[in-house]
Design a protein around this nucleic acid. Structure first.
Lengths: 243, 243
DNA sequence: CTTCTAAAGTGGACTAGACGAATCGAATGG
DNA sequence: CCATTCGATTCGTCTAGTCCACTTTAGAAG
C-alpha cells in the first residue's frame, strides 16, 4: 500500500454525462425541458445507451422525469414523509394530506413464510393478506401489503371496505391499539406491478418500508410491507436519546 | 375506464430473466457460483445486456455479488442497522461491532449552502467539513461528511485525530451533548468516490442518511450526511406512539 | 518443488442500431 | 370552425458486438 493510501476512483463516461446534466438541471426550473436523448448523444459524442444510463440515475434520484413520446423534464423537488406515527392515515394528516386507500386484493390464506413467523401464527393457522394502494389527496403514494391473524380479527375484510384506516378499524371493532412498532427500511427495484400502480417504470429505485407492530403486552398485531417511490420521497424520523 | 379498473403491467424481458435468477438463488447457498453472463445469455436466448440488467438489479438488492474476472456469486444476507441512537459509535456497539473511523479530509471553510443554513451560521462564518470513512470491525460501512461550526468548537480537528468518536469529543472537550436529532433517509446512486471507498460500483443503489442534531435548548450541533451501501444494509427504527 | 508467465475466461464499459409505444401537432376532411 | 387522421418525434426495449480490466489456472522455467 502506498503512503497516501488514497483510493483513486476512475470515472465512467456516463458519470461525466451525469455531472454535465446535473449542472444543466441546476440552471433550470422544475418542469423545464432538457435536450432529447439523441441530441445529448450527438453533442456529448457518446452513445444513446450511455446517455440513458446517466438520465436513468437522475430520474431515480428524482431530478428528472421522463415522458415517453414527449421528452425529459426537470422534476419537482422530493417530498418528505415523516415516519414517527404508526398509521398511514395519521402520517398523511400530519403532512397535511387526506389519506385514502383503494383495496387491491384481500384474501384469507394459510400462514406461510416471514409473515406467519412475525405474527406468531400456529402451524396451519390462517392469516389475511390485504393489498391496498395508499393515496394522499388521491395521488398514489404506496403499495401496502398487510398481514394479520384471521383468528384474532374475524370479519376484518368486510369492516375494511367501509373505512380506509386499518388502525381505526382495529381499535373500533376489536379494541386493539398498536403501541410500538419496528420499522425496517431498505432499497429495492420496482417490480412491474408496483411500478404500474405507482406510475413509474419497472426497476425504478424504491424505498421499501416494513412495519411490525405490537400491542402493549408485546403481542404482534400486523406485519406490513409498503413500497414507496424512491424518486419522490425522503423519509424523516425524529430521534431522541433515551435515558 | 373499464369496470375492473385494473392496471395490467407488461413484464419486460429482463424481468423474466430476473425471476428466473431469483428462483435459482433461492435454491443455492450464499457463496455459490451462478452461471456466467455468457452462459445465461445462451441458455435464456437473450442478449448479454438484458442479462446484465437483471443481474445488476439483484446485485443492487443484495442477492448477488459480482467479482470481475472471477464470477457472480450468491450474496450473504443483508445486515440490519438500528437507527435509534444518535452516534455511529453507539450504533456499532449496540450491534456488537467495534466502531472505527479513517479521517479522509478535514477542512475549515466558509459556511455555504444547506450546511450553513442548518447550523444557523452567520453570513461569512466558518464551518468544519470533516469527511470520515466509518468502520465496523475494520470493515468500511459508510462515508460520513460532518459539518460543524468553527466558532463553537475551536480546535476540533486536532481533537478528532485522537478519538474516532465525534460525540465523545464534543462531550469531553466542549460539554456538548446532542439530545435530539432529525434523520432523513433517501436512495441515491453511488458517486465514483463513495463507491470506491465502500468497495462497490459507481451507480450502485445507496441509502443516504442525513442527521441534523440539536442540544436540549434547540441549538443545532452538527449536520451529517452518511452514505451506506443499499445492497448491504437494512435500517431498523423502533417507534412508539407518543402521548 | 517452487516460481513465474502467458493464456483463457470472467465481469465492466461502451457502441451502433433496430423496432416498438406513446405523444403531439399539422394536415385533412367534415 | 371542429374533429379526426396520420406522420414525425420522443422515450422504451432489446440486440449483437467490441474492447478492456481483472482473476484464475495451467504450463513453462528455474
Amino acid at each position: 500500500m502506498t503512503a497516501a493510501d488514497v483510493i483513486e476512483p476512475r470515472e465512467p463516461k456516463y458519470y461525466l454525462v451525469k455531472r454535465h446534466l446535473l449542472e444543466l438541471i441546476e440552471s433550470l426550473e422544475p418542469g423545464a425541458l432538457v435536450p432529447t436523448e439523441r441530441e445529448l448523444t450527438a453533442t456529448l459524442a457518446t452513445s444513446r445507451t450511455t446517455v440513458r444510463q446517466a438520465l436513468g440515475e437522475l430520474v431515480g434520484e428524482g431530478r428528472l422525469v421522463r415522458r415517453q413520446g414527449s421528452g425529459t423534464y426537470v422534476a419537482e423537488p422530493k417530498m418528505t414523509w415523516p415516519l414517527q406515527m404508526t398509521s398511514f392515515t395519521e402520517q398523511a394528516a400530519a403532512n397535511g394530506f387526506v389519506a385514502g386507500a383503494r383495496l387491491l386484493s384481500a384474501e384469507r390464506m394459510r400462514g406461510t413464510g416471514e409473515a406467519a413467523t412475525r405474527l406468531r401464527l400456529l402451524p396451519g393457522a390462517y392469516m389475511y393478506r390485504i393489498e391496498r394502494l395508499r393515496l394522499a389527496d388521491d395521488t398514489p403514494m404506496a403499495v401496502e401489503t398487510s398481514h394479520l391473524s384471521v383468528a384474532r380479527f374475524p370479519g376484518l375484510i368486510k369492516a375494511l371496505r367501509k373505512s380506509s384506516s386499518l388502525y381505526r378499524v382495529l381499535e373500533a371493532s376489536y379494541g386493539v391499539i398498536p403501541l410500538t412498532a419496528e420499522e425496517t427500511i431498505e432499497t429495492r427495484a420496482a417490480p412491474p406491478r408496483e411500478a404500474a400502480l405507482l406510475g413509474t417504470d419497472t426497476g425504478a429505485p424504491m424505498l421499501v418500508l416494513g412495519r411490525h407492530s405490537f400491542e402493549a403486552d408485546g403481542t404482534p398485531v400486523e406485519w406490513v410491507r409498503s413500497w414507496y417511490r424512491g424518486d419522490r420521497y425522503t423519509f424523516v424520523a425524529r430521534l431522541t436519546t433515551r435515558g
